[in-house]
Design a protein around this nucleic acid. Structure first.
Lengths: 151, 151
DNA sequence: TCCGCACTTTACGTTAACGTAAACTTGGCG
DNA sequence: CGCCAAGTTTACGTTAACGTAAAGTGCGGA
């Protein structure tokens, strides 16, 4: 996996309350910012993950779109499909007009997602354990080699 | 995502030191155990992730294969490709004949994987934060509705 | 005015990770 | 013996998530 530069790594600030706050971005700027191709960004729009403003036929992205893209890419890194991510994102900002029934449904979905994240956390924990084991075996073999060289 | 039953959820025991310890599994048993299709298991073999014994033309899986499959599925849940997983698995047990050069390379790869896991952890943390936020907004809207109903 | 660059749409191509169907063998059992 | 369930190979199909190429639009600068 290639190395991210700007947005890709988490910044210390929590929820982007007071960030650069650029008014808008072109598709090219946004693509460089997150190290994805314009094609990818257009594809995400087509899949209902983004909905940029249009000036003529040109797309104009704002903070809201930037946040959505960030969420999308984060979701992808966690192995979610675009459809699943869209589900969460739709929750994220389709709320003001929510009736109680809808909101209850949301809470259920949130709870499910939360459980998934917990499961992933456990996966990571176990994976790290195995990395530890391999590393230990690896180092012990290296030690053996050293000892043999010295004696 | 479908719900796992047996092996899929992490058991309390750490590294399978003293598990059921069945001698062997058929492809069907293994597939039920992990809730994947036989086709998937054969595909993983074709991709170099499994290498079961053969009795005639029939595949026989042992503990080693079970562990590999478990690692593979765990990797998948974390969004790794089969190729990446194979890389790790090859490290996992192609070590005895390692020269120092090889072992150093392994340690590098391990370090890289470790960094990736850390990044994923951070992703999860952020994702959980956002789930919290959405839930809070959700609950506050519900509260408003309640208040309105009561008054 | 013309250039070049960044943007656009349309459409076909590609890769990973399996699903699905067909046709074949094989071991146990009534 | 006959048959069924569970295994096998071979091969083509499918879906998600983009890549890539072609052809057109819009605009700020020399």
């Amino acid at each position: 996996m290639p190395k991210p530069r700007q947005e890709a790594m988490a910044s210390p600030s929590a929820t982007g309350a007071l960030k650069p706050q650029r008014r808008s971005y072109s598709i090219g700027e946004l693509s460089r910012l997150f190290e994805v191709t314009p094609r990818t960004i257009r594809f995400y729009e087509q899949e209902g993950l983004l909905a940029p403003e249009r000036r003529g036929q040109t797309r104009i992205y704002h903070e809201k779109d930037r946040v959505r893209l960030k969420l999308t890419l984060r979701g992808k890194r966690l192995g979610f499909t675009l459809a699943e991510i869209r589900e969460v994102i739709e929750l994220y900002d389709a709320m003001p007009d929510g009736n109680a029934r809808q909101l209850q449904r949301m809470l259920e979905i949130l709870s499910a997602k939360r459980a998934e994240m917990q499961a992933r956390l456990e996966d990571i924990r176990l994976m790290q354990q195995e990395l530890d084991e391999v590393e230990n075996r690896c180092r012990s073999v290296l030690e053996q080699l050293d000892r043999r060289d010295v004696t």
